Amino acid sequence: MSKGVEDLQILRLIKAFQKITDQDARRLIILFVEEQLQKQQAKASGGTPPMSARSFAETLDAYIERKLAEE
């Protein structure tokens, strides 16, 4: 994935996160991200490849969209 595409995905995630007004939902998203990071680090130390940036962005993007739809 090119750096430009990855940057655009990160910007989309930031914009979506900023639109969430419910503090509990924001906390859940942060917890989700931290959990995914821990899983990625555990996989990396175990010798298996970590989740790609694209997979992570897509997973988080879907999670944020579900939370926005709930509001």
Rank of each mutant, 00 (worst) to 15 (best):
L13K: 03
R54H: 06
F17A: 08
D22W: 10
L28T: 08
K15S: 11
I14N: 09
A57C: 03
G4E: 13
A42W: 03
E70H: 03
L28Q: 13
K67R: 11
D7N: 14
D22Q: 09
G4A: 14
K67M: 14
R66G: 07
L28N: 14
T48W: 03
Q40E: 06
Q23R: 11
F56N: 04
E65N: 13
E58P: 00
A69S: 12
K19C: 03
A69R: 05
S52W: 03
V5R: 13
P49C: 01
V33C: 12
L28R: 15
L60H: 02
A62R: 13
I20D: 04
R54Q: 15
F32P: 00
K67F: 02
F32N: 11
R26M: 08
L68A: 03
T21A: 09
A42L: 09
T48H: 02
Q38I: 06
A69W: 01
R27M: 13
R66K: 13
L8K: 15
A25S: 08
S2F: 01
K15D: 10
V5D: 12
P50R: 03
F56Q: 07
S52N: 07
L8R: 14
E6A: 08
Y63K: 14
L11Y: 04
K3V: 05
R27D: 07
Q36L: 11
A53D: 10
R27I: 03
L11M: 14
R54T: 14
A25L: 09
A44T: 04
L8A: 04
A25H: 05
Q9M: 15
E6D: 12
A53H: 10
Y63L: 11
S55W: 02
Q18I: 03
P49W: 02
K43S: 11
L60N: 06
G46I: 04
Y63W: 03
E58Y: 02
A44D: 08
E34K: 13
S45G: 00
L31G: 04
R66V: 06
F32Q: 06
R66H: 05
D22S: 12
G46A: 10
A44G: 02
Q40G: 04
D22H: 13
I10M: 09
I14L: 09
A25E: 08
A53W: 05
A57I: 02
I64W: 04
V5A: 12
F32C: 02
Q36A: 13
R12K: 13
Y63P: 00
P50F: 01
S2R: 12
